[in-house]
Amino acid sequence: MNNNQTIYIVDDDPDVLDAMSMLLQSTGLTTKTHHSGQDFLDNNIPLLIGCVILDVRMPNMSGLQLQLDIKRKNPTLPVVFVTGHGDVPMAVQAMKNGAIEFLQKPFRDQEFIDCVHRALYINNLATNEREHLRSIQDRIDSLTKREHQIMRHIADGDMTKIIANKLNISPRTVEIHRARAMEKMRVKTVAQLVHIVMESEAQ
């Protein structure tokens, strides 16, 4: 687990809030409690790492509403729902919106903890993925215009001679740019280069 991860718990019932927090803390996790959706939204949502535990039914702002808001601001932040009386349509909606789990109270503590761990794992993956993509983007951003141009052609499957022809430069020049782009992109083979370009363009 990532040590920077925090579990944000949002529940209008102070006792349940406290108990959830204490349980998670007892397993070594970091928690932060919020008694309302609005209170939670005071955080800088896009920067949060970890997961959110939401009560579906809260006065003023429902859990489902808050889930959409979080998804918009920070799609990598997983949401786990806990509820005392979730009905099926509500659960379906929550899952469609990407909830990790929809737990009915009273749940088994281990189930709850496992669920939180899964959420944190997913967040971890997502965070790593985001970091990875960001680093790729950083590398792409460090390319010169010509290097980027030649890398695009390589990714399209063009041979060196064809690229030289298309750009009206010598094959040798193409090879120099290619070598420099591969170095900047930190790849060893052309195949790796193609993969990383496709990965970045998939986003």
């Binding site: 349940v16 406290d18 108990a19 204490m22 039914r57 005392g84």
Partner: peptide, 28 residues
């Protein structure tokens, strides 16, 4: 009844979680 079930689940859930927290603390 739904409200009542919810209302009753709150303390039960809390009790269960507090108890588990105690166990975890002792175990660790």
């Amino acid at each position: 009844s739904t409200g009542i079930a919810h209302e009753l689940n709150q303390p039960l859930t809390a009790i269960s979680m507090y108890a588990q927290a105690c166990r975890n603390l002792v175990d660790n």
